[in-house]
Write a protein that binds this DNA or RNA. Structure first.
Lengths: 380, 380
DNA sequence: CCAACTTCTTTCGAAATCGAAGATAAAGCG
DNA sequence: CGCTTTATCTTCGATTTCGAAAGAAGTTGG
């Protein structure tokens, strides 16, 4: 339907376009500084990009003491990205323009337990719906990305041994999702997408740990400004053994995994045992906000356990910041307990300038991250 | 004395020279592949480098099915690097050529407790001695590097809060060591140097954890093929809390740090309590080799504790390999206990292709690492 | 308001880089 | 042994990039 044509970018144009699209540069001068190209070369390439309709000049930026820069933006008609973030019981879906800004974002209920085919076909149908409703006429779709709540092999786009995605093991998600399109398709772990999305909001941080505290616990790692995947499974902290008095066997077969104590699912099941029924992790936050002592104590304990695990990782990785996202991140006691544990036990050298903060990018962070990663695939 | 002249490399020449010096490329064709430059450009630049005496053509390499490549090497007369690795009671010192190959390496006793001035002046004098004895006439010194057993602020070359270097806190090591020369001077943590040195022997590993098990415990982290420093303190694992029955207060003021149980110093002090006097960590290895049960049990326990800490980090970082170096690494029970703990408790996804091995680069690894890092500074 | 200074952007000749085609050299194979 | 295949290295015209200089547009401060 909407276009399958390759973007007409050659050589250095792609680099420049990516810098503008990624929000890192807004003027020819910034492009010259960041790309390492000579100002004259930048001007030439930018002229070409404007000529081919991918960039537009839009007013002028604010002066830094001299002539005002002429502000550059990716043209709204340069293309669209369809992005999704799949959770256990609902998904967020959206369309972004090529600068990564959302045109529309929706949250819809869905159930990944229905299996990969049904779920992915539903995503594709939802994308078509969004495109039909919200895409300006003539603007082509340039790429598709989705986040999934499990480990992804980056090479193949397959889900690998996902603990919370029954029936998905080794399913070729990227292949299936992109079957009807001739477009770049990207599949990535949800915490990794969140991390990439947050990283855009932390431009000064080279090393970043982004925790996703939802019904599971995940962590995305940014090293040197870009996502660290390791062999595909990096960022897992849910199956670290924690020190507790009691003793619980985790679904992975080991004793006392962090996930068994501090994940949203674990908190919900403890609350259920105490006769407090809750349906989703954000309900736990609501209970905390309402001052229910059982919930607060549970969340604080979860924070302490998470913090103790982070302790090891902070000493080791020495990040610039820890960002906490996911639905549980809105619970104040969680953050403060994490802070307390990390600051108490870590080396002063590691916590000297360490910031521990709640997500800056809001609920769409993962979708923005999907856009950022997808841009790299599209503009190259 | 010997030269202070800058290397006459401009633009792309530096990149090419670095690739040859770093052992990554041996022929024009490899240079073209790795540098991304066109083969023709590579030929031109290589011709220039040969003309200025920095590169030499030396026989031919082995064919990969076609014409043999003409092997390139950095000229032995292109320059020398003076490198040192400072330990608590002794130092290794050496001279390397610009391809990072050692001309001479010596181990000499020294005592860092004498303070920074005395120690650094001694290093400088030792360098002069080595140069006078071993440097071919007319070959200029191009750079100086030393490893130190403590955290280093990479920006300033100062040692920061080192626990095992009394009197060194905040001392401007790089500045002092380089005072008499107008040359690049590099100061780096010893475990980090070891990691860089090992990384050369693991060309296929993008993510690498290199453990230095000596009288202290350190770890260097290679991410994406290059050293990860974080804010300067990355790689610290010695002050992670371990799970034990007993309870010991570490020098850092916290309870049950790994270092207090598993470092060479800790093992030695336990052995001393048992009436077995040993002077240095390698003596512990000797005891193990002699089958002394107390020593073997201790070392195996240390390996288990280290392995349990690595467990967390392996899940998180998902490295390609863990390399164990340092004087204790020659104790078999240490390695096997580490392996057992990691393979037992880590996620299958993380251990699937994980290799846990002893240092490949031998006792000079840290010096080679110093050379590698120094080359980057010199050839730019 | 004007002069001095910054910063952004373009112009234009010089230099570096590319890429295609050919020359060189060796391995594999009937 | 001579052919084909593979790989390395060089030549040369076309293209891209650079860098210095100048023009454009603003800020700052007397």
């Amino acid at each position: 339907m909407s276009g399958k044509e390759r973007l007409p970018v050659r050589g250095a144009q792609g680099d420049l376009l990516r810098l503008v699209a990624g929000g890192q540069a807004e003027s020819r001068a910034e492009l010259a500084r960041l790309s390492g190209l000579a100002a004259s070369s930048v001007s030439l390439r930018v002229e070409e990009l404007i000529g081919s309709g991918l960039l537009v000049e839009e007013g002028s930026g604010s002066s830094r003491g001299g002539r005002r820069p002429r502000r550059l933006r990716v043209s709204p008609s340069a293309g669209l990205l369809a992005v999704a973030d799949l959770g256990g019981r609902h998904a967020r879906l959206g369309l972004l323009d090529l600068s990564g800004s959302p045109l529309v974002v929706e949250e819809r209920p869905c159930d990944i337990a229905l299996g990969p085919e049904a779920t992915l076909d539903w995503i594709a149908a939802s994308f078509e719906e969004l495109l039909a409703t919200h895409a300006p006429p003539g603007v082509p779709l340039r790429g598709i990305a989705t986040g999934v709540p499990g480990p992804v092999d980056p090479a193949t786009g397959r889900v690998v041994s996902p603990s919370r995605m029954p029936g998905w093991n080794n399913f070729p998600v990227a292949e299936h999702l992109g079957a009807h399109y001739d477009l770049p398709v990207l599949v990535e772990n949800d915490a990794n997408l969140l991390a990439v999305g947050e990283a855009r909001a932390w431009p000064d941080a080279e090393t970043l740990m982004v925790l996703k505290a939802g019904s599971g616990i995940g962590c995305g790692v940014i090293v040197n400004g870009s996502l660290h995947r390791g062999r595909g499974a990096a960022g897992d902290i849910s199956h670290v053994r924690v020190r507790t008095d009691s003793s619980v066997t985790c679904s992975c077969g080991h004793l006392d995994c962090l996930e068994a104590y501090a994940s949203g699912a674990a908190l919900m099941s403890v609350l259920a045992e105490q006769g407090i029924a809750v349906g989703r992790p954000s309900d736990v936050v609501a209970l905390v906000d309402d001052g229910i002592p059982e919930a607060t104590a549970l969340v604080r304990n979860a924070g302490r356990l998470i913090g103790e695990v982070l302790t090891v990782l902070v000493n080791f990785l020495n990040p610039d910041a820890i960002v906490v996202g996911g639905s549980l991140s809105r619970a104040e006691p969680l953050i403060s307990a994490i802070r307390a544990a990390v600051y108490e036990r870590c080396l002063p050298l590691a916590t000297r300038d360490l910031e521990i903060a709640v997500s800056r990018s809001g609920p769409d962070a993962a979708l923005l991250g999907a856009g950022t990663l997808l841009l790299d695939a599209v503009l190259r």
